[in-house]
């Protein structure tokens, strides 16, 4: 871990200001991802802006019947919140399937969205990785890539986004609210928040340098049946090999989002419309254009199977 200076931000706007004033700065929230990476010098901020005591830890109803979730709300609290449990079950479920009780107690809403990939080559500084060090190559492409993405990949990076929560947020059409150093606020739809790798896999989100997340807004509840099905290599405390978030609403409308498939939570609007035609149809539409390797080709079959499990669960 490189030496850094440390400050506690006084307000969201001040946090954003400090970030712009110190080009090497990073916000630290729960710290569960940032410190992990700093210890390995994958992240090397020279200045840390501690945003933990800014407030922003409330969950409040919005005027149009949705919820505004403060950026610093802990994953445990978000999952356990009454309105979330009642109206956004898929989000509770996604959160509870992630990490461990200890980590969820620390992890924040914003931090969770911004956690970086678990690609093992990204994690090993002796290996080439375009995301960690642009231009060095992608070691995963012809290496160990069983867990890597099959959708929206590029020749430069095939990493996945590891968050479970983000998959549910994408499904729910959440919006990320931010503030910049000059006080400008904007709202970024989840669909646009995470990026595909393209030839700049090091740029992962739509955030500008120093832009600070203040909250995430959920639109009004969809109702219906909410399911989050996470498939993993051990029963708990493991990242998803694949996950499916689904809502079957009362009007018979369906929507699906996927984790473990892409550099961002994966959702294809065309697939949403096919809920009535069953798992195979949804899978086919969601996976159009898939690019697999020998090791991760099973994700095609697994996607369909997991969807089938979701449909079966819905019936039960």
């Amino acid at each position: 871990m490189k030496a850094f200076t440390y400050e506690r931000a006084a307000s969201p706007a001040k946090a954003a200001e400090a970030a712009v004033a110190n080009p090497g700065a990073k916000f630290i929230a729960g710290g569960t991802n940032l410190l992990d990476l700093m210890k390995l010098q994958i992240e090397t901020p020279t200045h840390l802006i501690d945003v933990n005591r800014l407030g922003l830890d409330e969950i409040a109803a919005t005027r149009d019947g949705g919820l505004r979730i403060g950026a610093l709300v802990r994953n445990t609290d978000l999952a356990a919140h009454k309105a979330v449990r009642r109206d956004y079950g898929v989000l509770s479920r996604a959160l509870l399937s992630g990490a461990s009780g200890q980590l969820r107690n620390k992890a924040t809403t914003a931090g969770n969205l911004l956690q970086r990939t678990r690609c093992p080559y990204f994690y090993d500084t002796t290996k080439p990785c375009n995301k960690r060090k642009p231009g060095t190559g992608c070691a995963a492409l012809n290496g160990f890539n069983r867990n890597m993405a099959i959708m929206g990949t590029s020749a430069d990076c095939i990493a996945t986004h590891p968050s479970d929560m983000a998959v549910a947020m994408r499904l729910l059409d959440a919006t990320v609210e931010t503030i910049t150093s000059d006080g400008t606020k904007r709202a970024i739809p989840m669909a646009d928040f995470h990026r595909l790798p393209g030839n700049t896999p090091d740029i992962e989100t739509a955030l500008a340098p120093g832009e600070f997340i203040t909250s995430v807004v959920l639109p009004k509840p969809l109702g219906g049946t909410h399911i989050y099905r996470k498939v993993r290599d051990r029963t708990s405390y493991a990242f998803a090999v694949l996950s499916v978030a689904a809502v079957f609403d009362k009007q018979g409308e369906t929507r699906f989002a996927f984790g473990g498939l892409a550099h961002k939570p994966w959702r294809v609007e065309a697939a949403d419309a096919l809920g009535s035609r069953g798992a195979a149809a949804v899978a086919e539409a969601a996976l159009a254009g898939a690019k697999t390797t020998e090791q991760n080709a099973f994700k095609i079959d697994l996607t369909q199977r997991t969807l089938a499990a979701v449909f079966a669960q819905k019936e039960a």
């Binding site: 678990r118 093992p120 080559y121 994690y123 090993d124 290496g143 160990f144 290599d233 051990r234 029963t235 708990s236 405390y237 493991a238 990242f239």
Partner: peptide
């Protein structure tokens, strides 16, 4: 490649 405890899986309580 998978040289840590997040990537080298050993059984946890739930297993």
């Amino acid at each position: 490649v998978n040289h840590d405890m997040a990537e080298y899986h050993v059984p946890v309580h739930a297993d």
